[in-house]
Simulated assay, not measured.
Amino acid sequence: MRLIRFLLVFVLLVFALPAGASLLHWQFSERPGSWRQADWGSSGLLPPASEAEDAAIYILAARTGGLKGALAVHSWLVTKAPDATRYDRYEKVGWGQPVRRNSYPADGRWYSNDPFIVASFHGETAARLLPRIEAAIAAYPYRNRGDYRIWPGPNSNSFIAHVLDTVPDLQTALPSNAVGRDFRPGLFAFDIAPDHRDLHVTLGGLAGFAIGARYGLELQFLGLVAGFDFAQPAIKVPGWGRLPLSAS
């Protein structure tokens, strides 16, 4: 009984209260009433593709729409081949064609929310990784109509997490509030990254933990994540995401 009480208090303090605070803050934040009223235009975050000859890869994310935006971001992938004059944007959504390409501007806002760069690669590194990224996109196992599930996944973040896991040289983990990134099929999954730098254990994406160079130390519960980033010191707070411990 004492253990159960401790676990309930732990879940309340570590997961429920921060998530509830984020929901309350979001409820009183100004945002569009529907997707029709939202701004989906370019944010100006990325430089014009025609200005650079080098290859480029960007992982972008932005708060999603509706009440989900209080707890989660939507992520997508942007690529540019050498000498290309435009970007290609890839993402998984729950409507229309399952894996979308160039449905929105590369750095477009998502439900009026400005995107941010999770990671970027340029030049020879990007050119070397592009074929592997394209192969990972083509091999995504949940690319068919009807495969999308908002929670616990597979969703938009599950798609980008698949690419990142398949191409470990990207050395990137999605933000801790990218709900769905930890989805794995089946009741139980235990996996080690191909480069052996991260360990991930989950019960269907509903509860689990991760530890390693990319993830730091994370506890996962119902899609919410709490933990620490040791490489770039920060606290990972459910709903709020990554809160840096230094100003730099």
Rank of each mutant, 00 (worst) to 15 (best):
Q220R: 14
E134F: 14
R132N: 08
P233S: 05
F209K: 07
P48V: 06
N157A: 15
F6S: 05
G208S: 08
L23Y: 13
L129D: 06
S176N: 08
V9Q: 02
L174H: 03
S42M: 11
G212C: 09
A138E: 09
P141H: 01
G69S: 13
G94D: 09
A226Q: 00
I160H: 11
A106V: 07
Q27H: 13
G205C: 08
K92V: 10
L219Q: 04
R31G: 04
L46C: 08
A106C: 10
K68S: 14
D83E: 07
G44C: 09
Q171R: 08
L203W: 06
P152I: 05
Y90N: 07
V78F: 07
A49C: 04
R197P: 13
F10G: 01
Y111S: 05
K236V: 05
R149K: 07
G41M: 04
V118S: 00
F28C: 14
F230Y: 08
R242P: 05
V225L: 13
R2L: 06
R5G: 04
F15D: 00
Y90A: 05
G205R: 03
R242G: 09
D54M: 00
A70Q: 10
R143V: 02
G20K: 02
R145N: 03
D229P: 03
T172Q: 06
A38R: 07
H25Y: 15
R63T: 11
R100P: 03
I192A: 15
K236P: 01
Y58M: 02
F190R: 13
F15L: 05
A161Y: 07
V225G: 11
G212M: 06
K92E: 10
I133D: 01
W35Y: 13
G94E: 06
F230T: 01
L130H: 02
Q220D: 13
R31M: 11
I59D: 01
